[in-house]
Write a protein that binds this DNA or RNA. Sequence first.
DNA 1: ATAATGAATGACACGATGTCATAAAAAGAA
DNA 2: TTCTTTTTATGACATCGTGTCATTCATTAT
Lengths: 202, 202
Amino acid sequence: MPTQTFLNLSEEKKQKILTAARKEFTRVPLQEASINNIIKEAQIPRGSFYQYFEGKEDLFYYILKERNEKLVKLIEKKLKENGDIFEMFLYFYDKLIEISENKENRELYKTVITNLKTNDFIPFERNDKKSEFNEYILKYADTSKFENKEDLLLVINMLHVITKLSIFQTFNSIDEKKEMRKKYIKQIEYIKYGVIRKEKEC
Amino acid sequence: MPTQTFLNLSEEKKQKILTAARKEFTRVPLQEASINNIIKEAQIPRGSFYQYFEGKEDLFYYILKERNEKLVKLIEKKLKENGDIFEMFLYFYDKLIEISENKENRELYKTVITNLKTNDFIPFERNDKKSEFNEYILKYADTSKFENKEDLLLVINMLHVITKLSIFQTFNSIDEKKEMRKKYIKQIEYIKYGVIRKEKEC
DNA sequence: ATAATGAATGACACGATGTCATAAAAAGAA
DNA sequence: TTCTTTTTATGACATCGTGTCATTCATTAT
């Protein structure tokens, strides 16, 4: 988290720093992001940066958190409604694409998602929050279709990685947004009903 | 690719460099890997490194390529046999785990897989080779279960990301190798027959 | 008015990178 | 062998980014 000193800053100054940071984190992934670029753009001295943040990760996750809090709450609410994890993931996908109508948002998310590692998860928080989110899902998910908790977790995993890749691909073919959504839904359907179902005429 | 100068080196000297590099690429992901560490460990001067390689990426992909050539050929052969993409991915999974009985291999692969980005694909080559590999699959895959090429590609995508995550998880719970394999197979089964099949009594 | 606390600043030490001029070695020609 | 040419080896150097810290400046409390 940023220090209290940062939070005490005038809204104007805070925004100047956050805007500069968003620009840098849109340009390159976290690992390559340059603190120098951020402070140059925001016109603050080097020392100040470290007075406000522990390092660039601190700032990065603060920016993401700020953007995602609403989103997470929406997802959680959606899940509570009927416990359908398939619907929840589709809802998440739709909301994220909706937020990304705004070009700045989209470009930032695009860089972020592209550079997510194998076990990094959406909605893009620090990895230690993953279990927290999974626990929430387990609590409210409809388990009637699953033999046990393990199986449910497996499917959540699958939905997770497929959603991640689908969002990535959608951002990279943003002109064909509708087609990409159909493809995503098709993948969800595959998980629900299977690829080979037609053969068996269910 | 490394330069001819590197390839001309004595086997001994080459191995010294490659061993040092593998050590570094096991320690940290490519982005964080330090050329300084490699040349210190391999006891070669700074200038020599750049005489042999364009940079660390060059060396990194050379090491991976060396390890994966056999693997790729095996997979391709397997697919040719019967065109079953599900079997192909399971075969790939098994082979990789087999290779990783060796601890050094496993540790290297673990670091590599952990740090694969959203659109990076196994078997871990430069991304521009992805389409090459996909074309090969399309050529030999049994398409009878799919309405069209698009649908097949979708399922390959799904298998891809699920396999990637499963390998990651297996490496991180290597003591429960057998259980992890079962989980992976279960996920493949889900894609084949669907989560909800039981309801419909197929 | 003075002390005390909080914030701002930029010089500095450190470590990493890629280049390049020069030295050394090897290969080829005479 | 001796001289020339080509290939390889080397490490000092310029550049850039990072995180720290002693010092200065501002604000608030006494």
